[in-house]
């Protein structure tokens, strides 16, 4: 718990001081070691390795061969599918990112005003879809392309559709369909964090607010609630970014990989395609690297916006 003292110090002195502090706090390092070992081996090394790997040709059998920037060049100039994937990923990110973020917040806020039983019940209801990995079959039944598909049947009964629509194979619908299913599953970690944030707010703040003359729910929300849950909002934003930029599994399971005319092909799908199907690891790493860069940028942007608003 020792505090670092501030003051002018020469280089050697500072080094010695740091060493002294490290020795004084060696208990802390012991506590960190178990986490750091696994963290470095299975998270840091893979992420750091993906950069140099992006500059090579590597097929998992022969040694990686250095090819300079050619992977990145191909990616941006010659790979039409990649550009489609970028476009799709951005569309996904906009819908499942900000949209689902605001929706999570809204739902968490509405739930928060209920009694304990309803709170648990609704949290459960909204969180449950994100726990599933295997109810695609239900969606396949609903979206099935013949007139026995439930959605088709309902729409045809109502006279909206004349003939059955190919929800999961027609390029017109694929993207929309996958976005809806993705949204359905997206009330995950971020939602829970925001829920917890609402619970943590001191009730007396609202009482004070009521006496100070806050009139309605909206004022309460913007004047008291949002400013006092900064950390949870930031955390939820990070989670939202990382899930919305790496979407791909849902599409892969629902409409196949690759989807018709790459209509729902995301950057992640593209990386999976090259990595696991064609064993072009170098190229796949380059794709992942671009994805990382995009996520970093998005995170910087969100931090900037939220930071401006929260303080």
């Amino acid at each position: 718990m020792a505090k670092k003292t501030q003051g002018p110090m020469n280089k050697q002195g500072r080094g010695a001081y740091t060493w002294h502090m490290m020795k004084a706090n060696k208990g802390c390092y012991f506590m960190l070691i178990p986490f750091m070992i696994f963290f470095i081996i299975f998270t840091v090394v893979p992420v750091v390795m993906s950069l140099p790997m992006g500059f090579t040709n590597f097929n998992m059998i022969q040694m990686p061969k250095w090819v300079g920037l050619s992977n990145f060049y191909t990616l941006f100039v010659n790979d039409d599918v990649f550009l489609i994937a970028v476009r799709n990923t951005l569309i996904f990110a906009i819908f499942t990112g900000p949209f689902s973020y605001v929706l999570s917040f809204l739902i968490a806020w509405l739930i928060n005003e209920m009694n304990a039983f309803l709170k648990t019940f609704f949290t459960f209801v909204f969180y449950a879809p994100s726990m599933t990995t295997s109810v695609y079959v239900t969606w396949q039944l609903i979206l099935s392309g013949d007139s026995y598909g439930y959605l088709n049947a309902v729409l045809m009964d109502l006279g909206i559709l004349k003939s059955p629509a190919q929800w999961i194979t027609d390029t017109k619908y694929i993207l929309t369909v996958v976005i809806i299913v993705q949204l359905w599953m997206s009330m995950g970690a971020g939602f829970l964090a925001i829920r917890a944030g609402f619970q943590n707010i001191d009730k007396s703040m609202y009482e004070a607010g009521a006496i100070e003359g806050i009139k309605n729910r909206w004022q309460e929300l913007f004047k008291i609630t949002i400013p006092s849950m900064g950390p949870q909002l930031l955390f939820a934003a990070v989670m939202q970014i990382s899930t919305s930029f790496t979407v791909g599994m849902v599409g892969q399971n629902l409409v196949g990989l690759p989807s018709t005319d790459y209509a729902a092909h995301t950057i992640m799908n593209h990386a999976t395609d090259y990595g696991w199907v064609r064993y072009e690891m170098g190229y796949s790493s380059a794709i992942c690297f671009v994805l990382f860069a995009a996520m970093l940028l998005a995170n910087k942007g969100v931090n900037w916006i939220l930071g401006k608003y929260l303080d």
């Binding site: 299975f42 090394v45 992420v47 390795m49 696991w276």
Partner: peptide, 23 residues
């Protein structure tokens, strides 16, 4: 370390599968 953890929140996703496999 705190900063790295926040960054890792972003990166701990399926994008690292390939490299994890190699490790």
């Amino acid at each position: 370390i705190n900063q790295i953890i926040v960054l890792a929140l972003l990166f701990a996703s399926n994008a690292t599968w390939i490299m994890q496999f190699m490790v």
